[in-house]
């Protein structure tokens, strides 16, 4: 698959502008969204972060710390209760509802629970991002077939997701997220359901996207070995508060399951 792509004029204009920027972002779930004895729950508390274009970041923290909330704000599934969120230099508060889809197309998301469309076969699942962009089959079928080959599932092209193993579904979910070469890739536990060999292959695919397209990558994980091995910047979150490290910290108390 040809993952290389041209930079947009806007990207060239502001090469140093952060791709993702949070300023004093707070997120509160009200009673309609989450029922906690009628109390409002503070999921993110005054979060500040700045992710560079082309950077690879690992997001880690214990369960319930606010990782998913942070990711949802990044992939525009939620709006902050207060504070400012900027994506690719654009303040999302200033965007109309009609402008949001265009921005979402620049973001690839790998959900922890895959979220493949259960009634579509693998080919059609990978074709969804193209179809939402109004593209015709002849424009995307080669890309879909190439990528299916790359993740080793060409022989299962007509199968439904329910017939695949967890690891295979994970591969398809990653393929769907990267197929349109997004400027920001958000992956929630992308290697959680695959063997180490396939995990390396998938990380390799993600890194290729980073290398050739200059995409910013955010990987949420509990796997601190992976974080340490990568040696990339870390976003550590605990009780809704975020700390950004340029290199993996030596103390591991933020590292989810493996609190030692």
């Amino acid at each position: 698959m040809n993952i290389k792509n041209q930079q947009s004029p806007q990207d060239k204009k502001n090469p140093n502008k952060p791709w993702v920027k949070f300023e004093n972002v707070c997120l509160t779930y009200n009673q309609n969204q989450r029922k906690d004895n009628g109390q409002r729950t503070l999921a993110l508390d005054n979060v500040n972060l700045s992710l560079k274009r082309g950077g690879v970041y690992y997001l880690t923290g214990p369960s319930g710390a606010g990782k998913s909330s942070l990711l949802k704000l990044m992939y525009l599934a939620l709006r902050p209760t207060s504070g400012k969120v900027e994506l690719f230099g654009r303040d999302i508060d200033n965007l109309s509802r009609n402008e949001l889809p265009e921005l979402r197309r620049e973001i690839g998301v790998v959900f922890q629970d895959f979220r493949l469309l259960p009634h579509l076969n693998l080919f059609d699942n990978l074709a969804v991002p193209f179809r939402t962009r109004g593209q015709e089959p002849h424009e995307y079928e080669n890309d879909v077939i190439d990528l299916l080959g790359w993740i080793g599932l060409s022989h299962k092209v007509n199968q439904l997701p329910e017939t695949l193993s967890g690891g295979e579904q994970q591969r398809v979910a990653i393929a769907r997220a990267v197929i349109c070469k997004p400027r920001l890739l958000i992956a929630d536990e992308p290697t959680g359901n695959v063997d180490p060999q396939m995990g390396d292959l998938l990380i390799d695919l993600i890194m290729k996207l980073n290398q050739y397209r200059g995409s910013t990558i955010v990987i949420a994980t509990h796997d601190h070995e992976m974080v340490k091995r990568a040696g990339r910047p870390v976003l550590a979150i605990e009780a809704g508060k975020l700390t950004q490290y340029e290199t993996p910290p030596t103390h591991l108390r933020f590292f989810g399951r493996d609190k030692t």
């Binding site: 525009l76 998301v109 939402t132």
Partner: peptide, 16 residues
């Protein structure tokens, strides 16, 4: 709603 939400997050316009 799950499928609608996925389409929405992938960047489908409301009209789509």
């Amino acid at each position: 709603s799950e499928c609608v939400q996925i389409l929405h997050l992938i960047g489908a316009e409301d009209e789509f």
